[in-house]
Each structure stands twice: as C-alpha cells, then as structure tokens.
Amino acid sequence: MSAAISNPSPAAALWATGAQKILAFAGLIFLVIGFSLASPNFMQTSNIISILQAASVNGVLAVAATLVIITGGIDLSVGALMTFCAVICGVLLTYMGLPLPIGVAGAILAGIASGLCSGTFVAKLKVPPFIATLGMMLILRGLSLVISGTRPIYFNDTPGFTEIATGSIVRNFLPFLPIPNGVLILFAVAGITAYILGRTILGRYAYALGSNEEALRLSGVNADRWKIGIYAMAGGICGIAGVLIASRLNSAQPALGMGYELDAIAAVVIGGTSLSGGRGTILGTLIGALIMAVLINGLRILSVAQEWQTVVTGSIIILAVYIDILRRQRAAAA
C-alpha cells in the first residue's frame, strides 16, 4: 500500500477548509465598505456600536443553534427559550427579590434544564429534532406567558442589571471605544464554545454525531448521553441570551422571541455550517451574525423600507448557501 497512497493537494485542502470563512469574511468586509461609501453615517462609532449591540443577542443564540446543527439536528426553540429564561430571571429578581447573581444563574439553569428536555426527547425517545424543538418552542412560549401573567417584568428594583448588556467596561480603558458588555459576552461565549468544539471530547462527539451517528455508537461511545449534553449546553447559552435581552430592555417581555430562532439559524447558515451536520464553525457563525446585523443596519441607514430589508436578508441567505455549494463542488473536483 505504500505505493499508491498520497494526499490531496494542500491547496485543495485549504480551499475546502478555510475558504468558507474567508469568503464570508470577505462578504462582511464588502458590505461594510459598500455601506460606508453609500452613507457617511455608517462608519460613525455610535453606529458601529449599535451594530455590535444588535448582533450580540442574535449572535449568542446563533452559537447555541450552531451546536445543535453540528450534531445533525436543528433547534427551533432558541428564541422561545431565551424569552423563558428572561422571564425566570425576572421572577427571581423582581418578584422574589433575590440577589442578581442568583437571577443570572437561575436563567442559565432554566436554559440547561430545557436543553436537557429537548435532548432527551431527541436522543432517548427518538423524536426528530425538528418536532421535539418545535414542541419545546410552543411549550416555552406558553409557559413564559403563564409564569409572567402575560405582563412584562421590569428590573427597576435590581440596580446594575441593565449594566450587564449595555454598560461598558471597555470605556474605562478606552474612552473613545465604548464597546458594550453585551458584545464582550458574545465574544466570550463564542470563544469558549469554539474551544469546546475544537478541543474537547464534547465537541469531537458533536461533529461525530452529525457525521455518522451509527459509527460513533459502534465505536462504543454512549452517543445518546453526549447528544443530550450538547442540547443542554445550547440551552444554557440561550439562558445567557435571555439575561442579555432582559438587561438590554430592562424588562422581560413574555411575548418577545418569535422569529429569533430563524434569525439565529440564518446566521449559522450564512456562516457556512452545514444543515446536514458534521461541519461548521463558531467563527463562521459569528461572521454570519455580523453580516445580518450590518445588512439590516445599513439598509436602515439608507432608508430602505422594513419590508424590503426582509426580502434582501432572505436573498442573502440563499446566495450565501449557494456560494458554499459551488465552493464544495469545486473542492471535490480539485
């Protein structure tokens, strides 16, 4: 066998692995340059900050969605779960008057619990992920309304709560660059998740699950347990998103969250993660979330009507995935 074995050319390999990120990144740069040429207001610091702010909640949700999608599943409940966790946070802090760290921890734990439920339905009861998380989405939406009594819960009694997302630690060091904490939290969540995906067994099995679940099982790995673990982790991250959105609005809005799951999935897909599982990166998702935020912000600055903004976003999703398919075909032919 020493005779006929050689490796694919390094150029092809690089193209196959690195190019999607480069492509998406190039797309982002292209959009940024385009919009700043079109409008002088775009590149203002305050506008950049508001883009980042807008990207932070969707970005965190998209990170959660990425985890599940890599295992070959889909999570439709991320938006509803975010709202549910925000409501839990409100109940703990405002209704029960507990200290702030407990409120935050409670939201994250609620997210993990919900993830454990979805994961168990999928892994143990073999309910398809689409159905399991669709059900969870409706359940959580209903529960949010029930628990909150359909009224928003305000956080006026919890000093410092709004600081979590809207305050800026960075301002203390770099007064000219008041990056909000919410953005830092997004980067932290993304960084930690990327590390877990790339370096730990949980991440390895996430890719393995999406790639060939049966093979993983035949290798003697308790595939179900790890799958539940991934859903739980995604749930916990949705809990963080819940705290973020509550902090930004200084309230838990029980009716909020519809459509967030689709925005999250859109960011994941633009970032080059395959919906059939087995491949995808957090960096890509991050860029995907930024592309969506830049796009919406830029179109707004150019006073494009809201209705048309959605049309453009939809087209971008299809275009991004099509480019990815072209790239993959070329990589296969190389």
Binding site: I201, R204, Y207, S211
Partner: peptide, 18 residues
C-alpha cells in the same frame, strides 16, 4: 465502512478513546 466522514483519520481511529 463506518467512518465519520467529516473527521480526520486520527480523530476517527481514536474516537471514544481520545
């Protein structure tokens, strides 16, 4: 063949025993 196509050779070989 029961390999995980998206993982590399080493990752496949030691899956479950990394």
């Amino acid at each position: 063949l029961s390999l995980m196509r998206d993982l590399n050779a080493a990752q496949n070989i030691f899956i479950g025993r990394e």
